[in-house]
Amino acid sequence: TIDDAFRAIERAIQAENEGRYREALKHFLDGGEMIVTAAEKEASQKVRNLLLHKGKEVLEWAEHLAEWILE
């Protein structure tokens, strides 16, 4: 659900702030994927587009974090 997705993102932010970057990455990926999944089930085109945009933002952040971890 969207609530689960945002809880995962909150955990990711907390982990990132505490320097637990790999854990943060996992939570960002989980949250982003949950948002995209919820968007695919959404009946309203406007809400679907907003959710897809937010999911994409979260997944892009996860990608940047992963690249930073690997440096």
Rank of each mutant, 00 (worst) to 15 (best):
R20L: 04
I9F: 08
D30L: 15
R22Y: 14
D4P: 00
F6I: 09
E67H: 12
T1S: 12
S44E: 14
N17W: 10
H64I: 06
K54M: 15
A24E: 02
I2A: 04
N17K: 14
Y21V: 12
I13V: 08
E40C: 14
I2W: 07
A24C: 07
W68I: 07
L52G: 01
I2E: 02
Q14S: 05
G31A: 15
E18F: 05
E18H: 07
F28G: 00
A5G: 02
D30R: 12
K26W: 06
E67L: 12
G55C: 11
Q45H: 10
G19S: 04
A15K: 03
R20Q: 06
R11M: 14
A38D: 04
A66L: 12
S44W: 07
L51T: 00
R11F: 07
A5M: 05
G55L: 15
A15H: 10
A66H: 08
H53A: 14
L70S: 06
N17R: 15
A38M: 12
L29V: 04
A43I: 12
A5E: 01
R48C: 13
L70N: 09
H27L: 15
V47M: 13
E67D: 10
K54P: 01
E10T: 07
E63N: 13
G19D: 02
S44F: 08
N49K: 06
F28T: 01
I35E: 04
E60N: 11
L50P: 03
S44D: 15
D3T: 12
R7D: 06
K41W: 06
L25I: 12
W68D: 01
H27V: 03
D3G: 11
H53M: 15
A66V: 07
V47D: 06
G19M: 01
E33N: 14
V47N: 04
E71N: 10
K26S: 06
I9H: 00
L59A: 05
E67S: 08
L25K: 01
L25P: 00
G31V: 11
E42R: 03
A66S: 08
N17L: 14
A8W: 10
M34K: 08
L51K: 00
K54F: 15
E10S: 07
A15E: 04
A66Y: 13
L70F: 11
G19E: 02
E57M: 15
A8H: 11
Y21C: 12
D3N: 10
T37H: 11
I9N: 00
R7C: 08
R20E: 05
A8E: 13
L29D: 02
H53V: 11
N49D: 15
Q45G: 11
K46A: 15
L51H: 00
I69L: 12
A39D: 02
E71T: 12
Q45S: 09
A24I: 01
E33A: 14
I13N: 01
L52A: 03
E67Y: 10
R11Q: 11
F6W: 06
L65M: 06
K26R: 10
K41T: 07
T1H: 09
A66N: 05
